[in-house]
Simulated scan of single mutants.
Amino acid sequence: MSWMRGLLAVLVAGALLGGSTGCGSGGGHEQRGGVTASPVGKVLAGTDEEGRHYREVDRKDAPEVAVEVQPGARDDWQVRLTVRNFRLSPAGTPPAAVTGHGVVRLFLDGRPLIWLRTTEYRLPGELIPRGTHQLTARLHADDRTVWAVQGKPVESTADITASAAEGTANPGGTG
């Protein structure tokens, strides 16, 4: 019987020691100023114009994006994104950086427009006044850090030229 008490003591001690080493924050998920300190890439001190930190990844593993804009049939613009090494995360995805996953932030003339979880978007014509404008698609991780290569955000820009005056532009209020 004493051997059973010894075995029981060993099992309890092992469970206690194993439980304490298995608990904790797990360094890969700790927060650093609201940004996930994930084992994915390296969070840089630099930020974009919105104050979102860059998450540096190697060029060979980096996601890519291309943006194409065509006039639509109803006084709008059809935006199509092509992504490589990247998957758009569905709504409700936890705010953590996962290799090759995230969302796209569209900017019109440098102003934030909308967050996208799809590769197609209809840009209302009333947001584009007469003249030439730039639409930029920038890739973000789900924790909203900006995917970056060599300190520069992973993004693509396309020009939009509207020939008719079509109301006022206020893209900052839509996204």
Rank of each mutant, 00 (worst) to 15 (best):
W115Y: 14
L108I: 05
A66T: 15
E49N: 11
A96I: 15
R105I: 01
G72M: 05
P95Y: 12
T47W: 00
R105M: 14
R111I: 08
V67A: 06
R59I: 08
G110A: 10
A137I: 04
G131F: 01
K60N: 05
V83D: 04
Q70I: 09
A96C: 13
V67M: 08
K60H: 13
P90L: 13
L135W: 08
H101W: 15
T118H: 08
Y121A: 10
P124G: 05
P112F: 12
S89L: 09
T82Q: 15
R52E: 12
G92R: 08
V98L: 13
R74T: 06
P63K: 04
D48V: 08
D61R: 11
D75A: 15
A73E: 15
P90E: 13
L135A: 04
R59F: 10
L113W: 07
F107Y: 15
E50N: 11
A66V: 11
G102Q: 08
L108Y: 09
G100Y: 12
D61M: 02
E68L: 13
Y54M: 01
W77L: 03
L113R: 05
D75V: 12
Q134M: 05
V69A: 07
N85E: 14
E56H: 04
Q70F: 13
P129W: 03
Q78P: 03
R87P: 00
R74Y: 15
T93M: 07
P124I: 00
Y121K: 02
L81V: 06
Y121H: 03
W77G: 08
E50L: 15
S89M: 06
E126F: 14
E126P: 07
R80K: 15
H133E: 10
D75L: 14
W77K: 00
V69T: 03
A73V: 13
A73K: 15
L135E: 01
L123Q: 01
Q78C: 07
E64I: 07
G72K: 02
P71S: 09
V79H: 03
N85P: 04
K60Y: 08
W77H: 06
H133W: 08
V103C: 05
L116T: 00
R105W: 13
T82L: 10
A62K: 03
D48G: 04
A66W: 15
G100P: 01
R80W: 05
G102Y: 05
R55A: 09
E49V: 15
R117K: 09
Y121V: 01
P90K: 13
L116M: 06
V69Q: 05
G72F: 02
P94A: 12
Q70G: 05
T136Q: 07
G72P: 01
R117Q: 10
P129V: 04
G72R: 08
T93K: 12
Y121T: 02
R55W: 04
